[in-house]
Computed example of a mutant assay.
Amino acid sequence: MRHPRLLRAALLAVPVTLLAVPGAASAVEGGLPAECAPVDLTDEVAVDQRAAASDDVFAGRVEAATPTPGTGRIGYTVAVRRTWRGDVPKGEQAAVTVDWPIGSQPAVQPGAAYLFFTRDTPEGIVADACGGTVPLPKGLTPKVAATLTAYLASVEPPPTPDPPPEPVAFHQPDEPLGDPPRIGRVLASGGAISLIGLLGLLLVSRLGRRRP
Rank of each mutant, 00 (worst) to 15 (best):
A13T: 12
P15S: 10
V16T: 10
V16M: 11
V21T: 10
G23R: 11
A24W: 12
S26G: 07
S26E: 15
A27E: 14
E29S: 11
G31D: 15
A34S: 13
E35G: 08
L41W: 04
E44Q: 14
Q49S: 11
A51M: 04
A52V: 06
S54H: 02
G60Q: 02
R61H: 05
R61C: 03
E63H: 04
E63W: 01
T66L: 12
G70Y: 00
R73C: 00
R73G: 03
I74V: 15
R85Q: 15
R85F: 11
V88N: 02
P89A: 09
P89H: 06
K90H: 06
Q93P: 01
A94V: 13
V98G: 01
D99H: 12
P101D: 06
I102H: 10
V108Y: 01
A113C: 09
A113P: 02
L115D: 04
F116S: 03
F116P: 01
D120Q: 14
T121R: 12
P122Y: 05
G124E: 03
I125H: 01
C130M: 10
T133F: 02
P137F: 03
A145Q: 13
L148R: 00
P157D: 11
P163M: 07
V168Y: 03
V168K: 07
F170K: 03
F170C: 04
P173N: 01
P173I: 01
P181I: 03
P181W: 01
P181M: 04
R185S: 14
A188I: 06
S189I: 12
A192V: 15
I196M: 14
S205G: 10
R206L: 15
L207Q: 13
R209C: 05
